[in-house]
Amino acid sequence: MQALTNRALPVDRKPMSFWEKLYLPAVFKGMMITFSHIFKKKPTINYPEKQRPFSPVFRGLHILNRDAEGRENCTACGLCAVACPAEAITMEAAERLPGEENLYKEEKYAAKYEINMLRCIFCGLCEEACPKDAIYLSETFTPADYQRKQFIYNKNELLIPHPKENPEAYAKALGNRAAKGSVNA
């Protein structure tokens, strides 16, 4: 019979020699192997203290963006909700009233904006669909809670921190974004 590959090795069925029958040299060899592993570098990363660097295209939880003056970018056009394959996004639009120009960038805004994180598949299609650069996926990735209803994130939980009132948190949230943008561009 012809072998399919020539990588097959015949099994060694020679009777064991005296030294092999003693087993102790083999045991000792095995123990040396395990001992050498004590000094090997551990691949584990101490997770909460240290984090593995993310891929630049990592897709985590969503963030609703503001512009530099702290005005919300979202115009409630609904393109993200249409693009969403998991139908995780719902929104209600409202008209900007006079005097609210410092809150919303354009005349229409999202009065209610909810993402169901249990439905979301983190595909990032909402980010691609958005014409106003209002939604993007961050690097936050381990949401944990005690109740299912807590996973329906509303606008307060999704909005990026205000750049004027909380510049540090804003810079931090944007920091992840900047790295991502540079690769995409």
Binding site: H37, I38, K40, K42, T44, N46
Partner: peptide
Amino acid sequence: AVIQDRRGPN
């Protein structure tokens, strides 16, 4: 843990 290249309880 160290023999198996892990860290063990810490």
